[in-house]
């Protein structure tokens, strides 16, 4: 075979092999999504509406069988107090399970900080929970593949597979995971997966009398919650970690991380 023929045949083979590749049309994710409208849950916290009653924490713990008195919780409410002499205090006694019934700041270990009421500059409450990140750090570190992101965006833990090593608890930048003291596995907010799949609101959303907590399908443009996320000024926690959190906050302050 001559060199020229060899090269020609080579080119023919390559061209032939590439035909099936070109037959595959490039998939446009937007078109696929429009044809198969899927649910992608997102959370919206309006911190300006929260009064720190802690009904959400109580409802969450009751609904999901988290021991009430153990110092672990799937959701919690933080209190931020700024004084006029520019000091900043944050506390969350028992995750605000019983609300805030004391104007003193809980410093832990039984110590409290009295703040003169004339010295309070601004103060507010911030509910926190798992952000159900689009790119979660916790699911990547699991050595046994027990934690995963469901198709509808909810990050779940398979309690039968979890070995309780605690890697995911350390990996979460938001401290949203904890070790379940009874079941001895990693536990976290599930957006009340069982309630969502029954068409109910999650327990915390249901319990909030002030509408500070809401959930919506971020893949549905007409969803009122998606509308707020698209059109209003919302922020996420620790954006710099690149986890793409799916819990959006209205009225975030710089100190809230």
């Amino acid at each position: 075979m001559e060199r020229r023929d060899f090269l020609k045949k080579c080119i023919m083979v390559i061209a032939g092999a590439s035909v099936p590749l070109s037959a595959l049309t490039l998939v446009d994710p937007k078109k696929v999504l429009a044809a198969n409208p899927s649910i992608q849950w997102a959370f919206l916290v309006d911190t300006t509406k929260c009064v720190g009653c802690g009904f959400c924490v109580k409802a969450c713990k009751t609904e999901n069988d988290i021991p009430l008195n153990a110092n672990v919780t799937r959701t919690w409410v933080e209190r931020y107090v700024y004084t006029k002499d520019d000091r900043r205090y944050v506390d969350s006694p028992k995750g605000a399970l019983d609300g805030y019934t004391d104007a003193r700041i809980d410093l832990g270990k039984g110590e409290f900080k009295e703040i003169d009421k004339d010295n309070v500059g601004k103060a507010f409450f911030v509910p926190k929970l798992c952000n159900h990140c689009a790119s979660p750090a916790c699911t990547q570190v699991c050595p046994v593949g027990a934690t995963y992101k469901a198709d509808n965006g909810v990050v779940l833990v398979d309690r039968k597979w979890c070995i309780g090593c605690g890697y995911c608890i350390m990996a979460c930048p938001y401290a949203a995971r904890f070790f379940h003291p009874v079941l001895k596995v990693a536990d976290k907010c599930t957006f009340c997966y069982h309630r969502l799949s029954k068409g109910l609101d999650s327990a915390c959303v249901n319990a909030c009398p002030f509408g500070a907590r809401k959930m919506g399908n971020i893949h549905d443009k007409n969803d009122p919650i998606t509308q707020i996320i698209m059109n209003e000024r919302v922020g996420v926690l620790k954006d710099e970690f690149g986890t793409k959190p799916q819990a959006f906050y209205i009225g975030l302050a710089q100190e809230v991380r």
Binding site: T48, K49, C50, V51, G52, C53, G54, F55, V81, D98, G99, Y100, T101, D102, A103, K117, D118, V120, G121, K122, A123, F124, F125, F210
Partner: peptide, 15 residues
């Protein structure tokens, strides 16, 4: 009741 009706001096919050 005290969850909401404890007096907290937070004039900038919904409280």
């Amino acid at each position: 009741c005290l969850r909401c009706h404890t007096n907290l001096p937070y004039t900038t919050s919904e409280r």
